[in-house]
Design a protein around this nucleic acid. Structure first.
Lengths: 248, 248
DNA sequence: TCGCGCAGCTAATGTGCGTTAAGGCGCGTC
DNA sequence: GACGCGCCTTAACGCACATTAGCTGCGCGA
């Protein structure tokens, strides 16, 4: 067992810092968490399956993953994206069994941490417990916003909203500096996340391109006019609860 | 300020008991929570609005309420139902601002409890903190299941799924003993929860009646053949995490 | 008594979306 | 070099939905 590395927790530390002020001591406390060597996973591989009883908390270091649920006949819904810095399943701390699966969308690297490892860290730095709970609540809030999107927004509005959300989340962990950033997932993933058929998703993307709302090619997304995109999406960032250091 | 009443916390106590074994001491600890007099609200009134910073945790005693989100142009999505025994916003313990609204669907009665009231209770009975967190996680799991429903299930499957879910949840708090139970909300509410137009919701209900899946009239829902309804809905109860004392 | 709002229900119409099918490009592998 | 496969793209077709409209019945307040 080795402990985490400074580079490995950098996205996590940035993310938690968006929720509340953190001290240097918080960072060093996180660094004492013991984890095995970094795990790697291929795109399209499962990290965990519904029904399992995982004994480790996974911290995504690089690559994108998702939570998804599927039906017996094969229909599949992505219910959330994991970006670098996200814990994949903090809730195994409380619940006993996974009610959803976790899949890698790209090649991924992640740490596996034993739950009891958190014990001493959060006793020493109670702010960290608060930040982690905050993150869980935000995740829940994102799910609510997705319900609003899938239930009420049109496909174009829905996609626009998702792009803005991912832009803010990537920005929070330092993976989107300008208005152009890595966007490594496929149209199929976007379709599964938005409850659309692949064909219609593609149609909608074309329309967004025609309208000049986005450029998307070679796994790069470019948002020309963020304000316009937000207006189209009826985007209100309150649900992300980035209360501190709000940036445009 | 008076404390809660035994009758008032009965649904809550039953609910938490579905998650983990509770002692009589847990019940008495809950009874020491101070709350104002029972608040009452009319159907169609708002209990809290998005953007507010509520300073109280609300415990629903009777009636149904919902979480909802709306768009600037008036479109509205119900993202969850509150039944008696549910805390409406435990997460204000962590987050500062509501990212959704809470509305009464029927006449309701609820307690308002100051967050700091919980402090001594959970210090005395740590199991209760665990049970409350469990409940929050289950709520999040229900949202994921709704995403799967709205994204992938057909309107009929979706409605069937919702009916089964509500049946189990009502049963957990002692409000559904047989296969027939109070179902006080309107078709409009069902439409808003399922991302359907009112007209199409009505069509789908008619179809379910024709198929003999349910009977619904005079605010009473009757499920003739639960197993068949579950099969139609592709219902898997794992996401409710009622791990203890599973009943058919 | 009359109106008025709310809830349930149904019919007519059109379109937004899923489905099916097929072609292209780039990549890795035998 | 030929093949297969993942991914993106477009076209044709039809249906499952939303939209609009209008009916009934009931409870309630003026």
């Amino acid at each position: 067992m080795t402990t985490l590395t400074a580079a490995g927790i950098e996205p996590l530390f940035r993310l938690l810092g968006r929720y509340m002020p953190l001290q240097e001591e918080d960072r060093t406390a996180l660094l004492t968490l013991e984890a095995g060597p970094v795990c790697v996973g291929d795109a399209r591989s499962d990290i965990a399956r519904e029904g399992e009883n995982p004994s480790v908390v996974r911290l995504l270091v690089s690559g994108w993953a998702c939570r998804y649920k599927d039906l017996p006949d094969g229909r599949r819904q992505i219910v959330g994206f994991f970006l670098p810095g996200d814990f994949c399943d903090l809730n195994i701390y409380i619940l006993k069994e996974l009610d959803h699966s976790i899949g890698a969308l790209t090649a991924v690297r992640y740490y596996e941490i034993q739950p009891q490892q958190f014990q001493s860290v959060i006793e020493e730095r109670p702010q960290l417990l608060r930040a982690l709970l905050w993150h869980e609540m935000v995740t829940s809030g994102i799910q609510r916003e997705w319900l609003l999107s899938i239930g009420q927004r049109s496909p174009l509005e829905r996609l626009a909203h998702l792009f803005v959300e991912l832009y803010y989340r990537l920005q929070a962990v330092g993976l989107a500096t300008g208005h152009s950033f890595d966007f490594p997932i496929t149209q199929n993933h976007l379709a599964e996340a938005n409850g659309l058929s692949l064909v219609h998703l593609n149609r909608t993307l074309q329309e967004m391109r025609r309208e000049g709302l986005i450029e998307l090619s070679d796994k790069q997304l470019r948002i020309g006019d963020l304000d316009r995109l937000k207006r189209v999406a009826m985007f209100n960032s309150n649900y992300l609860h980035f209360n501190r250091a709000e940036r445009a």
